[in-house]
């Protein structure tokens, strides 16, 4: 860890005026926003992130830390803790997949500290990224290569990857938000704007050190999830090596609107194997208008994983991903 300055944010307007150079996920960004700190401080101790300045945004929690259930959808303040959203009665009842994805994430202690905005921007767990003694990591050292391609990659991504980076997006909530068409409200030097959550994380595109489409100085203030007939019949299924406190090796978010046996509308997200929060839109289309049978679920899962690229230890992921999606669909049908 290197010396840094620490200050507490006064308000959004003040932050916007200062146009802080927070970057787009680059490890050498000079300024970092500090919220729960569960990812940031960890990576600073490991000497991966080396900010000269931390700006603590938790003073904004009073204004941007609440959960609001509206007729047109759900609004979650970016500084709400994961724990508080997981137990919010409206979320539990109307958006069970969101509650479940939070409940199954991390540990109780981490969920108490970590915020929704920080969770969405959680860094990869790729060991070659997290240890600076490895010299080949395009995400950390642009142009240096990717040690994971030929290395230990059992829990690396198979969807949305290229040869520059196969790091996996480790989060759970993001998978649900991708499926539910969420939007994120941003605030920054150029004012507020609202963008689809699906555009927040960039594909590697040969430049995996640039992780987000956030502009310098911008931060997430709110997550908006539109209402829909599918949100109540929604779930998040997480497959992992141990029963708790563990990242997914495969996960699926399913939101389902059924007309009898027939799929009126379905939203599918895939986790534990994608470079960024992943929505399986073509698989959704293949299911829509058809009866939700095991065979149709399997056919949709086939489509969802057909572009998977494996690199050795993670060769099991496409098959596990298909099975996870099928199981999640059949479980949602039974809800």
């Amino acid at each position: 860890m290197r010396p840094f300055t620490y200050e507490r944010a006064d308000g959004l307007a003040e932050l916007a005026r200062r146009a802080l150079q927070t970057g787009q996920g680059q490890v050498d960004a000079e300024v970092q926003f500090l919220a729960g700190g569960t990812s940031l401080i960890d990576l600073m101790k490991l000497d991966v992130l080396r900010p000269r300045s931390l700006v603590d945004i938790t003073p904004l929690a009073a204004e941007h830390g609440t959960v609001e259930l509206r007729p047109d959808g759900l609004r979650i303040g970016a500084l709400a803790s994961m724990a508080s959203v997981a137990v919010h009665p409206g979320v539990v009842e109307q958006y069970p997949a969101i509650a479940e994805s939070l409940r199954l994430a991390a540990s109780a202690q981490l969920r108490n500290m970590a915020t929704i905005g920080g969770n969405l921007l959680q860094r990869t767990r790729c060991p070659y990224f997290r240890d600076p003694s490895w010299t080949a990591c395009n995400k950390r050292l642009p142009g240096s290569g990717c040690a994971a391609l030929d290395g230990i990659n059992r829990n690396h991504a198979v969807l949305g990857v290229d040869t520059s980076c196969i790091a996996q997006y480790p989060g759970d909530l993001g998978v649900v938000l991708a499926a539910l068409d969420a939007q994120v409200e941003l605030a920054g030097p150029r004012g507020a704007r609202r963008v689809p959550f699906s555009t927040l994380h960039r594909p590697p595109g040969g430049q995996p050190h640039v992780e987000t489409t956030l502009l310098p100085g911008e931060l997430i203030t709110e997550v908006a999830v539109p209402a829909g007939a599918w949100t109540r019949r929604s779930l998040y299924l997480k497959i992992r090596d141990r029963a708790s406190y563990e990242f997914a090796i495969a996960s699926a978010a399913v939101a389902l609107d059924l007309d009898g046996e027939t799929v009126r509308s379905v939203r599918l997200g895939i986790g534990g194997m994608a470079y960024r929060p992943w929505r399986a839109a073509e698989a959704e289309a293949a299911l829509t208008g058809k009866p939700l049978t095991e065979a149709n679920a399997e056919a949709a899962a086939e489509i969802a994983l057909r572009d998977a690229v494996t690199n050795g230890h993670n060769a099991y992921k496409p098959e596990l991903g298909r099975r996870t999606l099928v199981r999640a669909l059949l479980q949602a049908r039974a809800m």
Binding site: Y128, D131, G151, D241, R242, A243, Y245
Partner: peptide, 25 residues
């Protein structure tokens, strides 16, 4: 403990990636 074969180096040198059972297990 996972060994990167090419480098002969361990990659999961922490208690998050070196798995042990939790109470739920």
């Amino acid at each position: 403990t996972e060994l990167d074969h090419g480098a002969a180096r361990y990659v999961n040198k922490n208690l998050a990636d070196y798995m042990i059972p939790v109470n739920a297990d």
